[in-house]
């Protein structure tokens, strides 16, 4: 195995996992209240009323830690011409024909799109969630606004859940990736293969 290089600091990893765990809990409790087919998930949270009580607090925790994470990674997620080229060759990406792909920095366009999807959906979820938060805030919100809020909340949550499914799958699909977020390191070969510009920058090779 080739040498290891640092991809994420301890702080970055812990922040990521707080957001990730809160997301899983918020998604499960939110789905439970979204469709009757998922209502059984309320049992994981101690029943219907407890699911209703806990869900917003989990959401706030997720949002706050996400803000910290987003500020740290903001600069690295600007879309570049290489990203556009990468998106144009998405077929090669999916079919593992990586030799046709351009050199990339720390993140590829797929990761960046997920980042911006989260930057948009997280605040929407937080704001609309507060508007329908019983019994604290919802009693002071007009009914028409609550109706708008529930629809935006459901739609944003759906987009975020789909984004995270892709994110988790990509981590499983691209071998050697998970350790970046668990151990903080990746192999030099992994970095050279998937993020060559970042590899050059980091190692000077």
């Amino acid at each position: 195995m080739s040498r290891l290089i640092q991809r994420y600091t301890t702080g970055e990893r812990n922040t990521h996992w707080v957001v990730a765990i809160a997301f899983v809990l918020a998604a499960l409790s939110g789905l439970a209240l979204f469709h009757p087919a998922f209502f059984f998930l309320t049992h994981l949270f101690g029943g219907g009323p407890w699911t209703r009580i806990l869900h917003p607090f989990i959401g706030v925790l997720m949002s706050l830690f996400f803000i910290a994470m987003a500020m740290r990674f903001w600069r690295l997620n600007h879309i570049t011409p290489a990203d556009r080229q990468w998106m144009g060759r998405i077929k090669d990406v999916l079919c593992n024909r990586d030799e046709n792909l351009p050199e990339l920095g720390k993140y590829n366009a797929g990761q960046k799109i997920l980042f911006w999807t989260m930057v948009v959906t997280m605040p929407l979820l937080l704001l609309t969630g507060i508007a329908i938060w019983q019994p604290w805030f919802a009693p002071y919100v007009p009914v028409w606004l609550m109706r708008v809020a529930v629809v935006i909340h459901a739609l944003s949550a759906w987009i975020l859940i789909l984004g995270i499914i892709v994110h988790v799958y990509a981590a499983i699909w691209v071998k050697g990736t998970v350790r970046a977020m668990t151990r903080g390191t990746v192999t030099e070969a992994w970095a050279r293969h998937h993020h060559r510009a970042w590899y050059r920058e980091t190692t000077g090779k």
Binding site: S2, D98, V166, Y169, K175, T187, A189, R192, H193
Partner: peptide
């Protein structure tokens, strides 16, 4: 569908792995 799409993509296209060339170049 998103979950199944991922599963069947993995079964069809297989994992994305680092090739021997990269291993060699970076060692």
């Amino acid at each position: 569908l998103a979950v199944f799409a991922g599963f069947f993509h993995y079964v069809t296209a297989g994992p994305k792995e680092v090739d021997a060339h990269d291993e060699e170049k970076s060692s």
